[in-house]
Write a protein that binds this DNA or RNA. Structure first.
Lengths: 145, 145
DNA sequence: GGATTCTGGTTGCATATTGCAACCGAACGG
DNA sequence: CCGTTCGGTTGCAATATGCAACCAGAATCC
């Protein structure tokens, strides 16, 4: 899971970006959350060059974010999210909701993430205090180790 | 704010990545949240090549995520987050918390994001239902427009 | 106030990464 | 069987990145 050298040993943001901080990687993970598992499905969905896709899938498997599943019935490759990969759900939702708020004009349509139980769009996620108040950047600071 | 062509017109995740889906860009934004504002501060903090930093700062200003501030007292450039940039706080926190959970060994130290009012680390952020239950990817699906 | 340093870049060139198209063997489909 | 799809690999061209040198204007030193 560990790159030979981290960009910044102490910073969790930098470490995360060393593992998944690449446009294609994050779009592959988005597609994996949408249920895509096959090499060709990712390739068609993203329009990514095949050598780059092969490289990124290999890296994601090496880093424990996807696992390669070879079933008996179908010997071709499937790629599925590991628990560590599933844990990126919050990040993908954060990117999606920021885009919804900041990258579309008011009259533009976009795809929506729906919660099955209610049929409604997911509520916005935000850092909140124990009392429910929203936390903004000004309320925080990074404590270096 | 709009790239000439979006990777995927309908998907908010793809649009967000078109604007900030670059390792350096996200690290610049992280540093901006930590209070850095000067070209030389970003350059020293990140060890990024100066031409690349100049390019990324220009793009971030064009995309309305940073604004260039020239004060009378100090005519040198300062770069500060716009409201749209501040709104990325949730994304940066999500990346940070995923890294804390998944990119460090149990005995490894890392920097910590502290909430001023309590002096304690920020609680984890996650998508939650109205009843407070955590939402996982399986509970959701993307509705295409 | 003159010299020196710092800042915020730009430019040119070498190197690394990406994209594209062709190719390939194994597996499937009819 | 014969053609097609799948999951790649390979070689080459185009693009992006990194590095070092350079530069003008502002600030600092003395």
């Amino acid at each position: 899971m560990t790159p030979r050298t981290w960009t910044d040993r102490q910073c969790p943001v930098a470490r995360t970006l060393d593992l998944v901080g690449d446009r294609w990687v994050l779009l592959i993970i988005r597609d994996a959350f949408d249920g895509l598992t096959r090499f060709s499905e990712f390739q068609r969905s993203l329009g990514i060059a095949k050598n780059i896709l092969a490289d990124r899938l290999r890296l994601l498997v090496e880093n424990g974010i996807l696992r390669r599943v070879d079933t008996g019935a179908d010997s071709r490759a499937h790629y599925r999210l590991t628990p560590r990969g599933e844990d990126l759900f919050t990040v993908i939702v954060g990117l999606r909701q920021w885009g919804e708020r900041n990258a579309f004009e008011a009259d533009e349509e976009h795809s929506v993430l729906i919660l099955e139980q209610t049929g409604e769009p997911l509520p916005n996620i935000d850092p909140v205090r124990a009392d429910g108040g929203r936390i903004v950047a000004r309320d925080t600071h990074v404590q270096k180790v």
